[in-house]
């Protein structure tokens, strides 16, 4: 459990960090919850590790009224830890789904150190955040020494452990909408007993009006190579009264057409079925919280 030699830099500004990674073969260290174990096992042996933890700019969590979403946006600095997001009064009031997802990640130690930017950039197919970010239709703000761009989360995450992130690019912040009043939300997860990663995790947001479900967003993690939005479920539930039967009918489509993963903790069949169960649970709780 001893890593190979590597050069270590801890820049204090974003500019400095971008210049360092532009040189190539650098790995960016955020919270280190994925990178450090890989390095200790020597499955990863970067020549150069650029530690972002001293860049204060990347830790900010703030609201921006005119930002990326019509109702306002929350900007979560890439280095905001899971604990900070789970416990932030701002996130809890303006985007409670994200706080709920964060509180379900790993264990206390992981949440104290792991970051939203690191987790998103790693794109682990069983990470919790992507389910929430899909349901929130979040955006990822990326930056290089030369310029910036913003990608919707479903374009940012490309495949298992693969993102649209270029080698010289950093995740600067994750942008989520300020939640519309009355939106119900829920994150429901079947945790793998060893690591706590999601066997499946389902995030849901719903709105109701005049006895009808008017808005549904469902994000699923753990089932496949990458997290996705269960649009079939959304369409089936929208316009219904949101009864238990409506929920069951919609949730039954949650795993449809998806190439499900198998590992020693759960077969593809079980994952598929659990996706339906946890989708129903997430929708049920979200609807009970909507008003």
């Amino acid at each position: 459990m001893i890593p190979q030699n590597f050069e270590y830099s801890a820049p204090t500004s974003l500019k400095e960090a971008l210049a360092l990674i532009a040189k190539g073969d650098a790995k960016v260290l955020a919270g280190g919850m994925s990178l450090i174990p890989l390095m200790k096992l020597r499955l990863a042996a970067p020549e150069h590790v650029v530690d972002l933890s001293r860049i204060a700019d990347l830790k900010s969590v703030h609201e921006d009224g005119k930002g990326e979403f019509p109702g306002g946006a929350l900007h979560l600095g890439a280095l905001a830890t899971h604990f900070e997001i789970e416990s932030s009064a701002l996130v809890r009031s303006k985007c409670p789904l994200l706080a709920e997802v964060a509180s379900n990640i790993g264990d206390v130690q992981v949440r104290n150190v792991g970051t939203i930017g690191g987790s998103t950039a790693h794109a682990d197919p069983a990470a919790d955040y992507p389910a929430g970010l899909m349901a929130l239709e979040a955006k990822v703000h990326l930056t290089t020494a030369k310029g910036e761009r913003t990608l919707p989360i479903d374009q940012f995450i490309v495949d298992a452990l693969s993102t649209a992130l270029k080698p010289n690019e950093l995740v600067r912040e994750i942008i989520v909408p300020v939640e519309t009043r009355g939106t119900g939300f829920s994150y429901q997860k079947l945790a793998q007993p060893a690591s706590g990663f999601a066997v499946v995790g389902v995030a849901a947001r719903v709105r109701k009006s005049a006895g009808k479900v008017t808005f549904v967003r469902v994000g699923v993690t753990g089932l496949a190579g990458k997290a996705f939005r269960a649009t079939r479920v959304e369409k089936l539930l929208e316009g219904t009264s949101g009864s238990a039967a409506d929920i069951q009918k919609a949730a039954a489509q949650a795993a449809e057409g998806v190439d499900a993963n198998t590992d020693l903790h759960a077969s593809a069949d079980y994952r598929r079925q659990m996706t339906k169960v946890f989708t129903a649970r997430a929708l049920t709780q979200a609807l009970s919280r909507a008003d």
Binding site: A194, L264, H265
Partner: peptide, 16 residues
Amino acid sequence: LITGELMDYALPKAST
């Protein structure tokens, strides 16, 4: 040994 680490070998935890 495919449960070769604590990531895949499930120990009971205080919280469980």
